[in-house]
């Protein structure tokens, strides 16, 4: 881990307008929780699964991780400032791990905090803790995948969206086994193992979820490091 790389990454990420994209989603989440909890005669178990599961862990967490994970290194590759980092005597793994760490932290804060606030509004402290834990695990696995995508693919956001929309939200509904490779399911299982709440609908055993998520993190980190090691700049005609 390299603190200079981390500091530069954090400044680049939080200093850009792109970070504003992260604001509306938590606001919608908290807003919907407020509506649900203040509406009279409606049980939390009726709207809870939709807000925390279908919106929080299924949409807000992956999209936030996609924006952040694909930006921490992807933006530098796009605008060419990556050469400053590449022409330093740094092990490539150090660059990837530092970037991943920042992405993980930012995604966890951007999703964990609003999820916890919503859970507390809904009146469940255990759910809040569970959701933060789920966000922690999910952010790490998602960010590792999307960071690797940003080094491997020229269109990391498009590929990431295909994974979130097609695999996690569509295929999982038809093919049972697909769940095992869905980070969203990992996050839900982990969250519910702690929260034990009927608001979350987990379908993968928590041990399986943790193992597969760890494999994702490992594969993503190693893949990104290896790709960065042989990262070639395209020679622009001058």
């Amino acid at each position: 881990m390299n603190t200079t790389v981390m500091a530069l990454t954090a400044r680049a990420l939080l200093g850009r307008r792109r970070v504003l994209l992260l604001l509306p989603m938590p606001l919608v989440l908290i807003g919907m929780t407020l509506i649900g909890s203040t509406a009279s005669g409606v049980e939390a178990s009726e709207w809870g699964p939709t807000v925390f599961g279908n919106l929080g862990l299924s949409v807000i967490l992956p999209l936030t991780a996609l924006i952040v994970g694909s930006s921490v290194l992807g933006l530098e590759i796009d605008d060419g400032t990556i050469t400053h980092l590449l022409t330093k005597p740094l092990p490539r793994s150090e660059i990837i791990l530092s970037k991943l760490c920042v992405a993980w932290l930012v995604t966890t804060v951007a999703t964990g905090v609003p999820l916890a606030v919503s859970a507390l509004i809904a009146g469940s402290g255990a759910l809040a803790v569970g959701l933060v834990a789920g966000a922690l695990l999910g952010s790490l696995a998602y960010c590792a995948l999307f960071l690797a995508l940003s080094v491997i693919s020229k269109r990391p956001v498009a590929v990431g969206l295909v994974y979130i929309m097609l695999w996690e939200n569509l295929l999982v509904g038809f093919v049972d086994g697909a769940r095992v490779f869905s980070v969203q399911q990992h996050a839900t299982s982990f969250a519910n193992a702690i929260a034990q709440s009927d608001m979350l609908n987990d379908t993968v055993p928590v041990v399986t979820a943790m193992i597969v998520a760890a494999v994702f993190v490992g594969v993503g980190t190693v893949g990104a490091t290896m790709k960065l090691r042989s990262f070639g700049l395209t020679g622009e005609a001058t």
């Binding site: 605008d79 400032t81 050469t83 022409t87 092990p91």
Partner: peptide, 17 residues
Amino acid sequence: PDMYKQLGLVTERESVP
């Protein structure tokens, strides 16, 4: 990467944060 201890590069593309 260790080679960069003895090498400095100024690219043509004006890429500065």
